[in-house]
Amino acid sequence: MILLLELFWSFVKIGFTSFGGLSMIPLITSEMLSHGWMNAAEVSDIVAIAEMTPGPLGLNCATFAGMRAAGLLGAFAANMGALSPTFTLCTLAAIFFEHFKNSKTLIKIMTGVRPACVGMVGGVLVQLALANYFDITQKINIPAAILGVVDLILLLKFKLSIPKTLLFSAISGIILFGVLGL
């Protein structure tokens, strides 16, 4: 019981001091190591597993760390801790936003914030594209580029569903990068 509370509290701290995704990793690492719940090698597995399983990265880390430390209940406690900012601060922000939705000032603010938000996602896109469409020597990875174009056509022209497009890409990845060795 005390272990579960400790796990919960650790992830409350992690949740409130991070903004999701990879920004959680260093915090999780230090909490796991200082409590002795995982060793350094196990901690380094967290990212690999979080990336291979669907769902938000930060919560996958919480689930995996909680599982390792205290089984299924541990995973639950860690997730509840990681979700605590969502259930408190974000809900408050949502209530605030709903309340002032029609205020002229908020409309002006959001008119400025929306393009900034799209710009930030655009920035992430550029970083990810550089990592996935170019190899170490900065040369474009042609099979990856072709797969990207095919994905785009499947999504937009043929209106293929997102899960199916992801599955198609995974199989294409095995064929292109593995079987054909491109």
Binding site: L128, N132, Y133, A144, G148, D151, L155, F168, A170, I171
Partner: peptide, 28 residues
């Protein structure tokens, strides 16, 4: 083969984000 499959998935994730950016760009 698992690594290759996820390399394929990451290529698709970029396309998904690209689509989202274009859609939201027109509105924002």
């Amino acid at each position: 083969w698992v690594k290759n499959a996820f390399a394929g998935v990451r290529v698709c994730v970029c396309v998904l984000i690209f689509n989202a950016v274009i859609k939201l760009f027109n509105k924002a």
